[in-house]
């Protein structure tokens, strides 16, 4: 079993509830949404080494009705994590939106990106959610004007640049290709998977690097994923790009080489994230419009894309990229079809 360090349901609690007896492997991955593919990575390594035959990766949270992520962090034992947050909390920089907005402001300044470019991401993602009965925004379209007139949360970010807060849970199972062949539904094959943390890495606040307009940790993950899989950006047919906020989608497009640094704006304005585009992305509606389950819902959408069962199924689906949280030590994978 693998889950997030942030998860409030512990492994043996889940095992007791589900009726699982002998657990041979359990592991947690830190740093919020950065763990979304990290949990699959842990599972894959456990299966590969024989530590476990079948691993459940899960994430469940009461993001809406339980503890919310925007009330500041200042209590508890004095850990290095708490000392880290102390550089920000007294100054009121205490929400995920604010941390991302600090990078976004600089990115906009350097590359002439505007809020209208972020709107493209929100609008295209919502188109997918509209057709997904599981999505919070199922049947509720979003217009460009809706985005531009939505209230400011943390400038330069507006309401629809931010994902929702969700009560939800997701799980996926990682096992050997042999065992998967006997399963009721077709499996997706992990072609390449990796974790990564960059130099001078902080959790959400890596403000002290020479430049803050790119994601060194995601660049590192991208290099590994391509190297392990032997695939290149042009081999990727569709993607689930972690989208807790709209700007982070642009940065990842650059990290994974779908466009050059500073050019993601042109990529998204060209309709490339839509079903008819170069890289149909977040076909479930993403975290912006399906649900915020810390990226685990994206892992499952990646599997559906390979199976051909997405609510918004693109025509080509040989290889699907799935990424995890941005601004934190993170992870990603490329899924392919079982042999």
């Amino acid at each position: 079993m693998t889950t997030f360090t942030l998860d409030t349901s512990d492994e043996i609690g889940v095992a007791r509830a589900v009726g699982i007896r002998d657990l041979t492997f359990f592991s947690r991955v830190p740093h919020g949404g950065g763990a979304a593919v990290g949990v699959v990575h842990q599972a894959a390594m456990a299966v590969a080494t024989g530590a476990a035959r079948t691993v459940v990766c899960y994430r469940a949270l009461n993001g809406r009705s339980g503890q919310r992520y925007s009330s500041g962090i200042s209590d508890g034992p004095t850990t290095s994590d708490l000392i880290h947050w102390s550089w920000y909390m007294p100054f009121g920089l205490m929400t995920p939106a604010s941390w991302v907005a600090m990078f976004a402001q600089r990115y906009m300044h350097e590359f002439g990106v505007t809020s209208r470019d972020f709107a493209q991401v929100a609008v295209s993602t919502r188109k997918h959610a509209v057709k997904n009965p599981r999505a919070f925004f199922h049947g509720k379209p979003l217009t460009f004007a809706d985005h531009q007139s939505s209230r400011l949360i943390v400038e330069p970010l507006r309401l629809y640049d931010c994902c929702q807060e969700t009560d939800g849970g997701c799980a996926c199972i990682v096992t050997t290709a042999d065992r998967a062949g006997d399963a009721r539904h077709p499996a997706a094959m992990i072609r390449g998977i990796a974790q990564g943390a960059g130099g001078d890495q902080e959790v959400m606040t890596s403000f002290y690097r020479p430049t803050i307009s790119s994601l060194p940790e995601m660049d590192l993950v991208a290099r590994q994923v391509y190297s392990i899989s032997g695939l290149r950006p042009e081999d990727v047919d569709a993607a689930v790009i972690y989208d807790a906020f709209t700007p982070i989608v642009l940065w990842q497009l650059e990290s994974f080489g779908f466009c050059a640094a500073g050019e993601a704006r042109d990529f998204v304005n060209g309709g490339n994230l839509e079903l008819s585009g170069r890289l149909p992305s977040n076909t479930h509606g993403g975290q912006l419009s399906e649900a915020y389950v810390h990226g685990m819902n994206g892992v499952n959408e990646g599997v559906r894309l390979i199976r051909g069962t997405s609510c918004n199924q693109p025509r080509r689906n040989d290889h699907v990229l799935v990424t995890a949280g941005v601004g934190v030590p993170t992870s990603a994978m490329i899924l392919g079809k079982a042999a």
Binding site: T95, M102, V154, P156
Partner: peptide, 23 residues
């Protein structure tokens, strides 16, 4: 100023909004 944000929501007691945070 290398970068900055203007915080509007949520508003946490003890701070005055809009709050300008600068890097």
């Amino acid at each position: 100023v290398y970068s900055f944000v203007v915080m509007h929501h949520p508003q946490v007691p003890g701070y005055e909004y809009p709050l300008v945070v600068v890097l």
